[in-house]
Design a protein around this nucleic acid. Sequence first.
DNA 1: AATAGACTCAACCGCGCAGCC
DNA 2: GGGCTGCGCGGTTGAGTCTAT
Length: 286
Amino acid sequence: MGRHPCCDKVGVKKGPWTAEEDQKLVGFLLTHGHCCWRVVPKLAGLLRCGKSCRLRWTNYLRPDLKRGLLSDEEERLAIDLHAQLGNRWSKIAARLPGRTDNEIKNHWNTHIRKKLVRMGIDPVTHLPLQEAPAAAAPQGKEDYLPPPPPQQQGQHQPPSDGGLVLQEDAGEEDLPIIQPHEITTAPPAPPTAAAPAASNCGSVSSGSTSVVSPSCSSSASASAASGVEATEWPEPMYLFGMDGIMDAGWDDLFPGTGGSGGMGMGGVDPFDGYPGGGFDQDDDWM
DNA sequence: AATAGACTCAACCGCGCAGCC
DNA sequence: GGGCTGCGCGGTTGAGTCTAT
């Protein structure tokens, strides 16, 4: 027999989540945890498939999530990890406390990838782009900026720590533009040894890929190693208590959030900074 | 002020893997 | 040992928002 769909297609709601649905899901999960995602929507009274519930929870509702743009340190770490792991977003996310694979994936595709291209680095291989940027991104005015003024040349020297500096603070317009010829003047290294070298990842051992075992990736160690500051957790979410959550209106608890889309850009994130008490990187927090 | 295009991100889809029977 | 089921992951899409003209 064929593979069963993850859920019945009929009678299952799709699309953006409403505040009421979020409330139901959070209330249920904080009370009961998730023994089995397949039954969560039924028990929580949601017309969603379990898969959708899991996604909503892990990517958006989890109390231990950070929100907002990745910091410079987080970006740098993400780049280093991507150089080691490739598009293993979940593995990368495991090293970035409070970040989800989806978030990192989106941030990579929308921000970091462009920055790397502008810097003359192939975002896939982390090698210097062999071809001129015009060839690598022929259409992309967003992917390629004209050569910088002469005084900016030479600013692409790697920092002393060997990590990439994207200089988000300086604004993307002020990013150090690396001339393709400047990069390719470096001797093209063989692929095996070049990736770590090209990534400028000082902490990565060249040659054999030193993939960090997930087992050793704790939030603390990742934070310490990456320099990512420990989140300043304000009032823990669990201090609300379920009564508080269920009794208070969603807007009372989380003013400024207009439903599922209310936490978008510029919105107030109700969970921002809440502790991950009881949660681990695998989301198995019960 | 209106419109078009670009950009961002939440959500969906399909596949692969692992555990269970 | 083989089949089934559920979960997790990575890629993709589309709606909403922002910006430039």
